[in-house]
């Protein structure tokens, strides 16, 4: 089981709900992923269309926990205000805190992120900060009161996998007790398996599932990959080495001597 704040989670796969072909496919993907947590957002509501009301009904029917985000916020003020609005609408202290610093990479503004995290943690929020693999930033986020970190694998939606393996491994080694959830940039189930094999506690996937030709099938593939990666981690992988080691015993080999 994975514990995040006071919540125990069985599933190591969290799913984003954006960019799917239809609401029915969102529901199918969440079920196929066996996800217990889905991410959601807040957007301007048109009184005529009421699109948000229909979406909220769909999510409630799925019976999963929601992790609201502050996606699109570029300042501390915007992110903190959005967090307050999300807490009221979604009825949860959880907030996936994003403060975007750069538009081409959607890289977090880590300075604003730490400041917003400090404010929100002090107000009783349970903050899931979307951050880089930077160790010093991670230290600051933990000092601010965060008990979970969400380092990026690669830029959001890029599908590149774990871009900085050295940095991510260092982060895992440096904070062995902190739940670390890879957020953003994974494109394939093998990327998710790799994250779990390296000891990351969970992954959050959105685009790789939503934009697949068959999102429901891809959600199922990610679920299997995450389970395989976790099992492999628990089983204790061997260390890679440079030279061959025969797997078949050499004693009694025929035609020798």
């Amino acid at each position: 089981m994975l514990q995040v704040y006071q919540t125990q989670l069985r599933s190591r796969l969290m799913l984003g709900t954006a960019r799917y072909p239809s609401p029915a496919i969102v529901a199918g993907a969440v079920r196929a992923a066996r996800a217990e947590v889905v991410t959601v957002a807040l957007r301007r509501e048109s009184a005529g269309e009421r699109a948000g009301q229909a979406f909220w009904s769909l999510i409630r029917e799925l019976g999963v926990r929601v992790l609201p985000n502050t996606a699109g916020c570029h300042s501390v003020k915007e992110a903190v205000t959005t967090a307050h609005m999300a807490r009221e609408v979604f009825g949860t202290p959880w907030i996936k805190l994003e403060v975007i610093g750069e538009d081409d990479t959607l890289q977090p503004d880590v300075f604003g992120l730490v400041e917003a995290a400090r404010t929100l943690c002090a107000e009783g929020f349970e903050v899931f900060p979307y951050t880089t693999e930077d160790l010093v930033v991670a230290e600051r986020l933990l000092a601010a009161g965060c008990r979970v970190l969400m380092p990026w694998g690669a830029p959001i939606g890029s599908g590149r996998g774990l871009n900085n393996l050295f940095g991510l491994k260092a982060l895992r080694a440096h904070f062995p007790e902190v739940p670390l959830i890879i957020d953003a940039g994974l494109g394939l189930p093998s990327h998710a398996a790799q994250a779990l094999e390296l000891g990351f506690d969970a992954v959050l996937i959105n685009t790789a599932v939503a934009q697949a030709r068959d999102p429901v099938q891809m959600a199922g593939a990610f679920a299997q990959a995450v389970e395989a990666g976790l099992a492999a981690r628990q089983a204790g992988p061997i260390e890679p080495r440079d030279l061959a080691v025969p797997s078949t015993p050499l004693i009694g080999t025929a035609f020798r001597g």
Binding site: T17, A18, V26, V40, L42, R44, F55, I59, P68, G157
Partner: peptide, 10 residues
């Protein structure tokens, strides 16, 4: 005035 509602998010 901002009026926000639940929406799909990543």
């Amino acid at each position: 005035l901002e009026v926000l509602a639940p929406m799909q998010g990543g």
